[in-house]
Design a protein around this nucleic acid. Structure first.
Lengths: 255, 255
DNA sequence: CAGTGGTCTAGACCACTGG
DNA sequence: CAGTGGTCTAGACCACTGC
């Protein structure tokens, strides 16, 4: 199967429609993922089936799936199949959280103790609206919570979510949910976060923030501002975390 | 070419000698890189040549090189060849530095202005020795420098290097070097950093640190502690940076 | 045992680079 | 133009999973 190099001029600003076959297959599979043809945790069709569906060789499908697996959108399991990645049932509970104990032992003080402090509707301020690709004044949900480890409050998070996709999210549902928040978003609202960008700064807390983290106002904290994106690269969450780094640190590996 | 699954027991603690062919080829190429058979910036032999040398198909060599390219050890250039990655001549001047202007425009205030503050021999303290896999008291080189952008001192770095591989490194040579420090290490000392781990905290500076960065002692700063590794996964540099984050931030992308 | 993903091969052709 | 990496195919066989 050969797609022509398309001598016709493309509309400016658009990705040229010519690209290697395996990339085209990749985006076709991506479209099916976006459309929800296969749900997180479920298997996608076998390589042979997909090859038949798209009329290409198994090797080409394989390369497309390899690329999806490299993006963490899909998980390969030899002998079983290829599965849509999910925040639920994932052994790594918090895939985007990089704050680890100084000892290095993950889970050395067990799972996080979660406390929802607030959950309310707001009109988006200008900066929140910009981050979420909304208009200023659009309704957003704002959540504030604290994570503690071994009884020590360690993380204070403020979240902003677009009101429309998350209609019906309440403090009660959040408090009752046992797993990671992204698993709730995925299971209850069909919103799967696949990618995020973080901006990190050192800051001092204001009085309410210091109180919630049980530290002095002069204690330096990490400010971690995260924007998380879905399959279609739509920003769906703005999160600002304040991290205590007296017993933990933000760990980053540079390749 | 099929290597047997080796029914013979392996020495305990060693990686089993059986692994896919392309991984074996990858580590053979890696050995040649370590041995300096091809220097940074130079081309490695073509896929066809390597396939002939190792008596495997071109496809298998290709997969091995793909893995090396994914690790940033090698750079593919269509029509030209595959080249050993280098910190010199690399368009991204500082590959491991993730502090970017808030505006997002890289180079919005031009290149960093570098000032070497100190360069002296020391005996390694316990923590430095541990990070560099040395014994406490072994001689190390300690370097302190300041990076400024648009006249604003922004980064204060303390480096510790094992004395042996870096014998002959002086303040004068550092100050005279025009490019990134890792390029100097590579070109002048044959030490190529391929990977690093960073631990990030929020801290307050002490008086000398505050003075060098022209900030008050109550200004929160990012503390970025980096250990950098060579091909053979030997730690070869410990670096502690203090970053001002009033006009810049540490940017991290989570896949 | 059948079905899945994982490896390896051989060969054809394309796209890019430089002389 | 020859040489390089990049794509695509078809087929063989292996390793793992679950019935």
């Amino acid at each position: 199967m050969h797609l022509s190099s398309s001598t016709v001029a493309e509309a400016p600003g658009l990705t040229p429609s010519f690209s290697p076959l395996y990339q085209q297959i990749k985006s076709l599979i991506l479209q099916s993922l976006q459309a929800g043809e296969w749900k997180p945790g479920e298997p996608i069709p076998s390589e042979i089936e997909l090859a038949a569906r798209f009329r290409v060789s198994q090797g080409t499908v394989r390369k497309a799936i390899d690329a999806l697996a490299a993006d963490n959108l899909v998980v390969r399991r030899q002998g079983k199949g290829t599965f849509v990645a999910t925040h639920a049932e994932q052994h790594v509970q918090y895939r985007f959280l990089k704050l680890v104990p100084d000892s290095g032992d993950i889970d050395s003080d067990g799972p996080a103790e979660r406390t929802i402090v607030a959950c309310r509707q707001q009109h988006a301020a200008a900066d929140v609206a910009r981050s979420l690709a909304l208009r200023a004044g659009d309704t957003v949900l704002q959540v504030r919570r604290v994570l503690a480890y071994g009884g020590v409050p360690t993380i204070l998070e403020d979240l902003w979510l677009p009101g429309d996709p998350f209609k019906g999210l309440t403090l009660e549902r959040l408090a009752a949910w046992p797993g990671p928040m992204y698993a709730l978003f995925e299971t209850e609202f069909g919103v799967r976060m696949v990618r995020a960008e973080e901006k990190i700064r050192a800051v001092l807390p204001d009085a309410p923030e210091a109180a919630l983290l049980a530290v002095a106002c002069a204690t330096p904290l990490l400010s971690v501002e995260r924007v998380a994106y879905t399959y279609s690269d739509t920003p769906m969450e703005l999160r600002r975390g304040l991290y205590r780094t007296d017993r933990r640190h933000y760990r980053n590996d540079l390749g």
